[in-house]
């Protein structure tokens, strides 16, 4: 299917047509920042946004999700039997997601959707969700997607890619799901040569503005223990306060904890985001904690993203360069600096 085009004025109609058939999630301004939320009116979708503060991972891997519920009533024959808590899997569209965030879901799939184990809720949400991306014409100063194999116009994780060309949007349909979604909308035109050239220019200027900020390849070649034992971790970790900002904002941090909450004679089994920054993260029942020092926790986060993941899955880094951690770390620990240190050929003391 070749690219199609719609003028800016007509775009809300497309959103409306989608809303008639799907639950539509879009960037919505809440307080001082945007977040992905289900929209009830077309004008709530703000495609002029830069990016959301929290990544959209919560749409597939919620911060706190009731997995099961159970009864503890003594005479209830069903007592103690886990029953799946009701969840809404009706078809939905995520409108305006950034290419980096969509790519992140692919990187997370290796954890939630493997041949041995399938997380039923992640998989079903992935199946019933169509991702309509929005290319980044003006990446942030904290973005570095092009240095990690994705980019501001990357189509890899998307079903449709929209490009804002000023007077309107072009749409590139990429998958069958994308075709189905676009198929229920009307009002599209063919792309004129001028728009097509403009789109190409936007892509080039966005990619050029990002450049290549570091060379990731040397990390793949390096010996894991050499990196693990490197002296620079001591300097990297000093400022860290071990909060969960980086991990909670990150689109690829997937770790979770499962807890039971009981109230009276009813119980819920809940899955919660967890963070390797927290001391409780690897705390054993025995009382031993293999990562009881801040340095070990900080190192774990970067090594997981930049060394263990690439070594295990041969699938690039578990980082898409969205820059949220760079922007919002309260003490300015910058993953780009950490990559530079990890990839430096001489591991010199700073």
């Amino acid at each position: 299917m070749s690219d199609i085009y719609i003028s800016r004025g007509k775009f809300p109609e497309i959103t409306g047509q989608l809303m008639a058939r799907y639950r539509v999630y879009a960037p919505v301004l809440k307080g001082e920042y945007h977040e992905f939320a289900e929209i009830e009116k077309t004008e709530e979708a703000d495609l002029g946004y830069q990016n959301t503060r929290l990544s959209p991972k919560g749409l597939f891997h919620p911060h706190a999700e009731r997995m099961f519920e159970y009864s503890l009533v003594k005479d209830d024959p069903q007592a103690g039997i886990l029953k799946e808590a009701p969840k809404d899997f009706s078809p939905r569209v995520v409108l305006g997601i950034r290419p980096c965030d969509a790519k992140a879901f692919q990187l997370d799939d290796v954890n939630f959707d493997t041949t041995a184990y399938q997380d039923p809720w992640w998989v079903r949400r992935r199946q019933t969700t169509t991702l309509i991306g929005l290319a980044c014409n003006e990446p942030c100063g904290t973005c570095f997607c092009t240095s990690l194999g994705t980019g501001p116009f990357d189509t890899a994780g998307l079903d449709v890619l929209l490009v804002d060309t000023g007077e309107g949007y072009t749409a590139q349909v990429l998958t069958q799901k994308g075709k189905d979604v676009v198929g229920i909308t009307s009002g599209w035109e063919s792309v004129s040569r001028a728009v097509s050239e403009k789109m190409e220019g936007l892509r080039k200027s966005a990619e050029d503005s990002l450049g290549r900020q570091f060379d990731f390849d040397p990390i793949k070649q390096k010996d894991m223990l050499e990196l693990f034992n490197a002296s620079f971790w001591d300097e990297v970790q000093f400022a860290c306060i071990n909060c969960g900002t980086c991990t909670f904002l990150c689109p690829t941090c997937w770790c979770f904890d499962i807890q039971d909450e009981v109230w009276g004679d009813k119980g819920d089994r809940i899955r919660l985001w967890d963070s390797c920054m927290f001391p409780l993260f690897t705390f054993h029942g025995s009382g031993h904690n293999p990562r009881n020092q801040k340095l070990q926790r900080v190192r774990q986060r970067f090594m997981h993203k930049l060394k263990y993941y690439p070594d295990k899955y041969h699938n690039g880094a578990a980082c898409v360069g969205c820059g949220r951690c760079v922007k919002f770390c309260p003490v300015n620990i910058d993953i780009r600096e950490v990559v530079r240190r990890m990839s430096a050929t001489c591991v010199c003391p700073a």
Binding site: K30, I241, C243, G244, T245, F248, P279
Partner: peptide
């Protein structure tokens, strides 16, 4: 309402030095 339980407030605080915080 916007709190994401990241504990940045607690961890940036010099007073919060308890060996184990009550939430942990």
């Amino acid at each position: 309402a916007p709190c994401i339980r990241c504990y940045a407030c607690r961890n940036a605080c010099p007073l919060c030095y308890c060996p184990t915080c009550f939430v942990d």
